[in-house]
Measured scan of single mutants.
Amino acid sequence: DELEKRVKKIARKLNLSLDQVEEWLKRNNNDELVEAVKRLKKK
C-alpha cells in the first residue's frame, strides 16, 4: 500500500534496515508509518 511504499522509500533514501527505520519513526512519533513497517516486516 501507499504507506508501505513510503517506508521502503525512506529506508532506501536513508540506507537503513526496516528495524532502523522503525526506531527512527518511533522517535518521530509517526505511528501510522510504524504500523506500515510492522506489516512489511511480516512479509
Rank of each mutant, 00 (worst) to 15 (best):
A11T: 05
A11I: 13
N28K: 10
E2R: 10
K41M: 09
N29P: 07
V34M: 12
R27T: 12
D31W: 15
K8C: 15
K42W: 02
K43A: 10
E22W: 09
E23C: 13
I10S: 01
A36C: 08
V37Q: 02
K9H: 12
E23D: 13
N30I: 15
L16Q: 03
L40M: 09
D19M: 06
K8T: 10
E2D: 12
D19N: 07
L14N: 07
E22Q: 05
L16C: 11
A11N: 01
I10M: 06
L33C: 08
A11E: 01
K42C: 14
L33D: 00
N28S: 12
E32S: 10
Q20Y: 06
V21P: 00
N28Q: 13
D1N: 11
E2M: 09
D19R: 04
R6C: 15
Q20N: 02
E22L: 14
L18D: 03
L16A: 06
K42N: 11
R27S: 13
A36E: 03
V37T: 06
L18S: 02
K42T: 11
L14Y: 14
N30A: 14
L14G: 04
V37G: 01
K5C: 15
D1R: 10
K13S: 13
N30H: 15
E22R: 04
K41I: 13
W24A: 03
E35Y: 00
V34L: 15
L40C: 08
E2V: 12
N15Q: 09
E4Q: 06
L18V: 03
E22M: 10
V34K: 05
K43Q: 09
K13C: 15
V7P: 00
E4L: 07
V34T: 07
N30S: 11
S17D: 13
R39E: 07
K38D: 07
Q20R: 06
K43P: 04
L33A: 02
L16I: 08
V7L: 09
K9N: 14
L25G: 10
D19Q: 07
E22A: 05
V37I: 12
L25H: 00
E23N: 07
L33V: 02
N30G: 09
W24D: 01
A11L: 14
K9F: 07
K43N: 07
E23G: 04
I10N: 00
A11K: 03
R27K: 14
L14S: 03
L40E: 02
K38C: 07
R12S: 12
K42S: 13
D19G: 06
K42R: 09
D19K: 06
E22H: 06
R12D: 13
R6W: 14
R6H: 09
I10H: 01
V34W: 11
L3W: 10
R39Q: 08
E2Q: 09
K13H: 12
K38G: 06
K38M: 01
K38S: 05
K8V: 15
E35D: 08
V21L: 15
K43R: 11
R12C: 15
L25S: 02
A11G: 03
V34N: 05
N29Y: 10
D31S: 11
R6K: 13
N30T: 07
L40G: 02
R6T: 13
K26W: 05
K13W: 12
R12P: 02
K5M: 13
K8N: 08
L16V: 07
D19I: 05
D31H: 14
L3R: 06
D1F: 08
R27I: 14
V21W: 01
N29H: 12
K26L: 09
K43H: 09
L14I: 04
E35T: 05
A36F: 05
D31V: 14
N15E: 10
A36K: 02
L14R: 06
L25P: 00
L14W: 07
K5T: 13
K26Q: 11
K9T: 13
A11Y: 01
K9R: 14
N28C: 15
W24R: 04
R39M: 03
N30F: 15
N29A: 13
N29R: 10
K43G: 06
K13T: 12
E22S: 03
L33K: 00
I10P: 01
K13Q: 14
N28M: 15
K43F: 10
R12V: 10
E32A: 12
L18Q: 01
D19T: 08
D19C: 11
S17W: 10
L14K: 04
K26N: 07
L33P: 01
E4M: 10
L25M: 05
V37N: 03
L25R: 00
R39I: 04
K9Q: 14
V7C: 06
R27V: 13
L33M: 09
K26E: 10
R39D: 05
E32Y: 09
D31M: 15
N15F: 04
V7E: 00
N28I: 15
N30D: 12
K42H: 07
A36G: 02
K5W: 10
W24V: 06
R39C: 09
L16K: 05
K5Q: 13
E32I: 09
R39T: 04
K5A: 14
R39K: 08
R12I: 12
N29I: 08
V21F: 08
V7Q: 01
D31R: 11
W24Y: 13
K5H: 11
I10Q: 01
A36M: 06
K9C: 15
L3Y: 11
K43M: 10
K41E: 07
V21Y: 03
V21N: 00
N28P: 01
L16N: 02
S17H: 05
V37A: 09
A36W: 05
E35V: 04
E23S: 05
V34S: 07
E35R: 05
L33H: 01
R27Y: 12
K9L: 12
E4P: 02
E4R: 07
K42F: 03
L40I: 11
L3E: 08
I10K: 00
L40H: 04
K38T: 04
E2H: 09
K43E: 09
L40D: 02
L16E: 03
L18A: 03
N30W: 15
K42L: 06
E32T: 09
E4G: 04
S17Q: 05
K41N: 04
R27Q: 15
L3I: 07
L18W: 11
K42G: 09
